[in-house]
Design a protein around this nucleic acid. Structure first.
Lengths: 195, 195
DNA sequence: GACTCACTATACAGGCTGTAAAGCGAGAGG
DNA sequence: CCTCTCGCTTTACAGCCTGTATAGTGAGTC
């Protein structure tokens, strides 16, 4: 352990290569041709190696997803915006959410699509959505403290969650190509629910 | 051709059976086990018969989708609401849309999920979404004539389309179990964009 | 009564998944 | 320097699903 795992480094690199290859192929949204062999070829590696790193095709999706969450770096979104006014915090949260949706749009579209069809993928995404929901719950409480919404609390939260979800963002079509513009639109919607 | 195709009737029935079986299996959202053989078994028919009716697995999805559109009966939504005031027409259109999303929620979730992953399914759904968009365009024009929206026309239309999309409806979670309640929420959002 | 045509039964090629086993070769460790 | 470890490669295999082909059966048609 002199060079602190030169071997470990290379295996980590091949794992990275596999995950990146999977990311790229998933972004093409061609599930038909998303095979372990295709991923292996793109990563310059054997099929067996892929099975070695990730147990199965689902394991591969799992790896891509957790990797995606890691690079998201949205964890401290709430604390980052604590010092802002409720309105500004709302705008900031929506904006950063949009930027993230936009940055990985193709990949996310595939993953959320698969979640509608595969219970395993769904359960992984569900965890993340639950986290997002909690964050939004805090935000909604802050906003509601400054005004009296016309709708029931449960409806407001559900509405805000839906409006700021990836699928809604993606449904904006061409507008979603400009995250800042989309953020303004979505912020408008969120405020209409909470004011 | 005396009894007007007694044979034709039975073959139409088997086709119905196949499509219904496919609908039911798709609603379980288990793509993994959605095989031609499973559909055939559920329809009480041989695998070969399924291939006879629909050319392939994609052909089966196509058949399910066009069947779904047929039973939707949303074609005259716009003319039905022409005599109403703009605001009432908006509420009615959103409400009927929600009822439809709700009536086939599980199946639609699967189909829209697949569309994110399969270009063929996507292109079929795209046609329907284009139609919906046109309907909403008319509605937005009527609403905008009565007020001056704060947002650009393109943003308003994109927002309304997204907010009334199936995926957003489905993202409402438990609220989507009560289509009328969801309709009120979504109408609120649509109005906030157009007022 | 002969014919049509949808359905059945069976078989086959091709592709993808996942597992197993043997060999290689660079890195780790004494 | 010499040995051992361990990730990667190659090859092989069983199982499942898709899609196609072929021959047979039996109820509906004319």
């Amino acid at each position: 352990m002199s060079t602190i795992g030169r071997r470990a480094t290379t295996t980590a690199a091949t794992r990275r290569g596999i995950i990146d290859a999977a990311r790229e192929l998933l972004a093409t949204r061609d599930w038909q041709h998303f095979t372990i062999e295709a991923v292996a070829n793109r990563a310059g590696v054997t099929r067996v190696t892929v099975y070695n790193q990730v147990r199965s095709k689902r394991g591969l999706l799992d790896a891509v997803l957790t990797d995606l969450v890691d690079r998201a770096g949205m964890d401290q979104l709430l604390t980052d915006t604590q010092h802002l006014s409720a309105g500004d915090a709302c705008a900031a949260i929506v904006q950063r959410t949009c930027v993230f949706w936009h940055s990985e749009r193709e990949l996310l579209r595939t993953l959320f699509g698969l979640a509608a069809v595969d219970h395993d993928v769904a359960s992984i995404l569900k965890q993340r959505e639950e986290w997002r929901r909690k964050q939004l719950h805090s935000l909604v409480r802050r906003l509601a403290a400054e005004s009296t919404p016309a709708l029931a609390d449960a409806d407001v939260l559900a509405g805000v969650t839906a409006v700021t979800s990836f699928v809604t963002y993606d449904a904006l079509g061409a507008i979603a190509d400009e995250p800042d513009r989309a953020a303004l639109l979505l912020t408008h919607l969120v405020r209409s629910l909470t004011d």
